[in-house]
Amino acid sequence: MSKAVISPSTASGPPDAEPARRALFSHAAVNSRPVALVYRLLALAVILTGVIRHANLLTGDPSWTTVLFYTMVSNLLCLAWVLFLIVRTIRDLRQSGPFGASTPSARGSGAVMFAITVTMLIYLIVLVPTRFADGDAEIFSLTDNLIHIITPVLVIVDWLLFVPKGSFRWVDPLLWTLVPYAYLTWAFAYGALGGEFTPGQAYPYPFMDVDALGLGGVAQWIIALTIALIAVGFVFVIIDRALGALARRVARH
């Protein structure tokens, strides 16, 4: 009985149709793990400094209530993520050498970047005008700049330089809002059950003050902020897809 002859091409299945796409996901704008490691170590030190200063951890009177605010929650999220990136970069450096990108998840980087961008935009759009109106002399202090502006910029720059592009989806900005909305849900529940964010204050941010704004006013603020933040999320997606398309074109030549 004759045996069927299977050619190597048939046995191995169809050829890979997306070599350029695979190359895209293994490369970033800066494909040097030593450079990424140095940057991420410095970013970790800066983010940790902001967290320590904001919570007064080096004083005799730490402000533990800071963890009740989204600002601290998002900064701690960035701290954990950058630490994760450092561990991943060191592992890849040892196993795969100095060239290449080291990111557990490009979309995960997008989610963390969006979460801390919310902090920056709420600070600049909502809190700064309110605090100026109240005569707050601490506005744009070193600590404020660290936790509201510098940390977001560090995380965004990490994404721009060291994370492969082309993985964001159009639905991602909607998914990214789950983090701030989870916080909103918890904060409203905490205040409704008698919790206080500062003495006598059952809300963390002025736009959540139901007594002053009413339910309708708070809802309008949340809707407006949601639309603005989702729009920013779509800007991230557009940038990601544009850079991804550029990388694929370069990979084909």
Results as ranks from 00 to 15, higher is better:
3 K>L: 08
6 I>C: 02
8 P>G: 14
9 S>G: 07
14 P>G: 02
14 P>F: 01
15 P>T: 12
15 P>Q: 10
16 D>Y: 03
17 A>R: 03
19 P>N: 04
21 R>K: 14
25 F>P: 00
26 S>T: 11
26 S>G: 14
28 A>Y: 01
29 A>D: 01
32 S>Y: 04
32 S>E: 04
33 R>M: 02
33 R>K: 13
34 P>G: 10
38 V>D: 03
42 L>G: 09
43 A>Q: 08
43 A>R: 10
45 A>H: 09
47 I>T: 10
48 L>H: 06
49 T>H: 09
49 T>C: 13
50 G>K: 10
50 G>S: 08
52 I>D: 00
54 H>W: 14
56 N>S: 14
56 N>Y: 11
59 T>E: 10
68 L>M: 12
69 F>H: 07
69 F>R: 05
71 T>W: 12
79 L>D: 05
81 W>T: 05
82 V>F: 06
84 F>K: 05
84 F>T: 15
86 I>D: 14
87 V>C: 10
87 V>D: 08
87 V>I: 15
89 T>Q: 10
93 L>D: 02
93 L>R: 04
96 S>N: 15
99 F>R: 15
99 F>K: 15
101 A>H: 01
105 S>A: 08
109 S>L: 03
109 S>T: 10
110 G>H: 11
113 M>L: 07
117 T>D: 04
118 V>W: 13
119 T>W: 08
120 M>Q: 13
121 L>C: 11
122 I>C: 07
123 Y>N: 05
124 L>T: 07
125 I>M: 02
126 V>H: 00
129 P>G: 09
129 P>I: 09
131 R>Y: 05
137 A>H: 06
138 E>Y: 13
139 I>C: 10
146 L>I: 11
146 L>C: 08
148 H>T: 07
150 I>S: 01
152 P>E: 00
156 I>A: 13
157 V>Q: 05
157 V>H: 06
166 G>Q: 03
168 F>K: 12
168 F>N: 12
172 D>R: 13
176 W>P: 09
181 Y>S: 14
185 T>F: 03
189 A>E: 12
191 G>Q: 12
192 A>H: 02
194 G>W: 06
197 F>E: 09
198 T>L: 14
202 A>E: 09
204 P>T: 11
204 P>Q: 09
206 P>S: 04
211 D>L: 14
211 D>G: 07
214 G>I: 10
218 V>L: 04
219 A>Y: 00
219 A>V: 01
224 A>C: 04
228 A>D: 13
232 V>I: 03
233 G>V: 06
233 G>L: 02
235 V>F: 02
235 V>A: 15
244 G>I: 00
245 A>S: 13
248 R>S: 01
250 V>T: 11
